[in-house]
Design a protein around this nucleic acid. Sequence first.
DNA 1: TCCGTTACGCACTTTCAGGTGCCTACTTCC
DNA 2: GGAAGTAGGCACCTGAAAGTGCGTAACGGA
Lengths: 147, 147
Amino acid sequence: MATTSAAEKRAQAKAEYNAFLAQCPSRNLLDRLADKWVTLILSALGSDGSHQFGADCAGRPRPMRYSELSRMLAGVSQKMLTQTLRSLERDGLVTRTATPTVPVTVTYELTELGLSLHVTMRALKSWAQDHMDDVFAHRATYDTRTD
Amino acid sequence: MATTSAAEKRAQAKAEYNAFLAQCPSRNLLDRLADKWVTLILSALGSDGSHQFGADCAGRPRPMRYSELSRMLAGVSQKMLTQTLRSLERDGLVTRTATPTVPVTVTYELTELGLSLHVTMRALKSWAQDHMDDVFAHRATYDTRTD
DNA sequence: TCCGTTACGCACTTTCAGGTGCCTACTTCC
DNA sequence: GGAAGTAGGCACCTGAAAGTGCGTAACGGA
């Protein structure tokens, strides 16, 4: 029992954090991640934002400029975008790279950690799009049922 | 071009909804789904809440009582829980069943639609738990870097 | 008799997330 | 010489989200 393998440690960490518990730090992390803008940013940073969305878009993360992101995530305020990107950077999900060009150029890119979450976030966004009609249908019946 | 197959319709729907656009209804849906409590409820309804969390828990959805959920999701207010469950019911993700027992018994269960999202939500929750340490590490270096 | 439990609904109140507007520095274009 | 674009920072303000407290109906147990 003196030696602790990496696998054991991993299992221990898994058991240690439980987002169901209010005081667990992972609850807090979940709260930050379960956010509209986080979902969209992490989705965007993995896709090719310039053209069609129907395409598979492989899965390669693509660095994006700040202005590119703000155009892609229609309706996001500058403050929200900056704030969210900062917190993602702090948590190690994206990297920020500023290059002192003519007007300063800042690009954001997924880290490996961010990439591992990107898949899930993309799934969430896709789910919302793919099942929109189902949800509409259920809402309609629910609302007429209780009118 | 007169006939429209189900597959074509599906593809059309996919192209139709795009959560990146502010006015798209799927943006709104995403906003509702990307929520701490939604994530935890959908995670909980698929797992066996009574004992260990490390176990694989298969993937069978299990009906749960209201009080059971409120105990499991530590820290949720009754109002929030009720509100969230209602909206999930309205969207067709869970079903509510009230049986007029001695004190009234209400159980919630994932629908098929909810089950399809459950996987993603569970992944999100697991990600937060599994990568908590990584995130902590990144935060530490970020904070010392800018101190 | 009276308290406790279940699964809420309602009203009040607070809080803070997020929007908006205004500022920067630097350069280049008109 | 002034405007525009880039990537934000700062401060103010509000509206909606969420917490808190109180009530309920019906029944069982002490």
